[in-house]
């Protein structure tokens, strides 16, 4: 027998400097419910489990198909996308918390702009001459395409950062996702021309050396990106890069 209702326990906080508290909600059960549908229900009738009128929790979302990363939060202790968190597969009460490694905006919404700043630092792009016609890009084997596609499915959602003991917005470590993006761009025949600049960007403080090899990242990634393999591969590249620099200098 499916349950008649779903109980959600939501961590509320009106702003970064306000006091946090817990509030419980109960919404009618129906098939195909996910966490997002429950949050939409609460918006329509913002009354808590005690029957008191309240405000709806704030949350972040976009695609709801697990391809954008926006609705990432902690669901029953696990960092994941709220859209693909199906109620039928969750224990109740469903406990919702914001990611803890990023500055809080309100309730379940956090500010993940550090990820995008770190992508800027890592020069995670291909240097184009311009958008004018130059013919197709370099030929690529199907195997290389599949590897690059696998790495390129990273949604910058922050799950790997949430579980990383080294990651915190108050510290400079860029995290597994950004290091994996460095590998992605260094694998591209044109991107490779900038490999050295990317190596420089992730060789100092906050770079690859800050990885503590806890390997939580790869287990937390919702897209099963081989993050630890990326970090190892990048580390190998950078040893060669360091040696080359050493011999050029001396």
């Amino acid at each position: 027998m499916p349950p008649k209702t779903v109980v959600l326990r939501v961590r509320r906080q009106a702003g970064p400097h306000e006091k946090a508290y817990w509030e419980e909600f109960e919404v009618p059960y129906r098939s195909q419910l996910n966490v997002i549908a429950c949050l939409l229900d609460i918006q329509r009738n913002p009354v808590n489990r005690l029957g008191q009128p309240t405000t709806a929790p704030a949350w972040d979302a976009s695609c709801l198909e697990e391809v954008c990363g926006a609705c990432t939060m902690i669901v029953n202790g696990e960092a994941r996308q709220a859209c693909s968190a199906l109620i039928d597969e969750l224990e109740q009460p469903v406990v919702l918390q914001p990611l803890t490694k990023f500055p809080l905006v309100k309730d379940l919404a956090v500010d993940r702009s550090k990820i995008f700043e770190d992508l800027k630092r890592a020069k995670a792009w291909i240097e184009l001459d311009g958008t004018f016609p130059q013919g197709p890009g370099p030929r690529t084997s199907p195997a290389m395409q599949q590897l690059r596609y696998t790495l390129s499915r990273c949604m910058s959602c922050g799950c790997c950062m949430e579980v990383c003991p080294q990651y915190d917005t108050s510290r400079s470590f860029v995290g597994a996702a950004v290091l994996s993006q460095v590998r992605l761009f260094n694998l591209h025949p044109t991107g490779r021309t900038q490999a050295e600049a990317r190596h420089e960007a992730v060789s100092g403080p906050g770079g690859i050396a800050d990885c503590g090899n806890a390997q939580n990242c790869v287990r937390a990634c919702p897209k099963e990106i081989p993050l630890t393999e990326s970090i190892a591969a990048l580390g190998g590249e950078m040893v060669i890069h360091g040696l080359r620099k050493f011999f050029v200098r001396h």
Binding site: W125, L128, P133, Q134, P136, G137, R139, T140, Y149, G191
Partner: peptide
């Protein structure tokens, strides 16, 4: 065609033929 070639140059991992073409 120019647009798809440009996206290819930007590094979009488009699926490939055995020879390595789009």
């Amino acid at each position: 065609p120019n647009i798809v070639y440009l996206l290819d140059r930007m590094g979009v991992p488009f699926n490939r033929t055995p020879e390595g073409n789009l």
